[in-house]
């Protein structure tokens, strides 16, 4: 896509999450599930069957009272940049890596439900629709028309709210622009984070806050050893938190 100056540039959208700030409140996940029409069931405690695009993991440093400390890791899709594991195994081209934005998408109607991608994903971000989604009658009213509800037998996952990218482009086009400003395309979770722990932008654009934040020594990614180059970066000042992210094998 084009930048303000008009030259063609390939974007790599990415996110930073400051785990020192995150209070694990879950607003990001609630808003994500509202935005993306993620269904719910009566027993949500069965985490192997329930649907969630954003999960929040509570992790402690393993020490005893009173030295124990806790951090929360909100976990959207990591949007891997390199040998994206799910994309490389999908036999139906239902999940694809877009070279112009770096977004790893998921096309529900094309998915054949083999769940190969779920096995391949090292971050467990994908979930499978074991049942058709059912909302109590009037609850269908709060569904977002920008995202199609899925059907049974397909896999789904976080898309970095790619529909919001399109909405932002629509608006830009309506105003006769071909470029997006930094704050125009932001996933729902980032927009809603009440403590400002999440940032979003183009990692290729040095003017964007995220591009600067990922240079910081506080920045790290989950399972970097796998070299899947996730575009979701975490930030922490604590050594033990950064160590948690990888097995340092």
């Amino acid at each position: 896509m084009k930048t303000e100056s008009g030259d063609q540039r390939i974007a790599r959208y990415g996110m930073t999450i400051d785990v020192d700030k995150c209070t694990g409140c879950g607003t990001c996940a609630v808003v994500c599930h509202m935005e993306n029409n993620v269904p719910f069931t009566v027993d949500e405690s069965d985490k192997s069957r329930n649907m969630a695009w954003m999960r929040i993991y509570k992790v402690d440093n393993g020490l005893d009272y009173p030295h124990v400390r806790v951090v929360y890791f909100p976990r959207p899709c990591m949007q891997c940049d390199h040998h994206t594991p799910c994309v490389s195994v999908c036999p139906a081209s239902a999940t694809n890596y877009d070279g112009l934005t770096g977004i790893v998408d998921q096309i529900n109607t094309r998915c054949i439900g083999c769940r190969y991608c779920m096995a391949a994903c090292p971050y467990m971000v994908r979930c499978f629709n074991w049942w058709d989604p059912v909302w109590p009658k009037d609850m269908e009213k709060h569904l977002n028309p920008d995202v199609a509800p899925r059907m049974r037998g397909v896999v789904e996952k976080c898309t970095f709210c790619s529909h919001r990218y399109l909405k932002a482009k629509d608006k830009a086009h309506n105003e006769g622009r071909d470029y997006l400003r930094e704050d125009e395309y932001v996933p729902a979770c980032v927009e809603a984070c009440p403590v400002g722990a999440m940032r979003f932008g183009d990692l290729n654009n040095p003017e964007h806050a995220v591009a600067q934040l990922i240079q910081s020594p506080r920045a790290f990614r989950l399972l970097e050893n796998l070299h899947t180059e996730p575009k979701v970066y975490y930030l922490s000042s604590y050594e033990w938190v950064r160590k948690l992210a990888d097995n340092f094998a």
Partner: peptide, 10 residues
Amino acid sequence: TSTACFICHK
């Protein structure tokens, strides 16, 4: 123009 899947699929 882009032919990324998400450009048309929601």
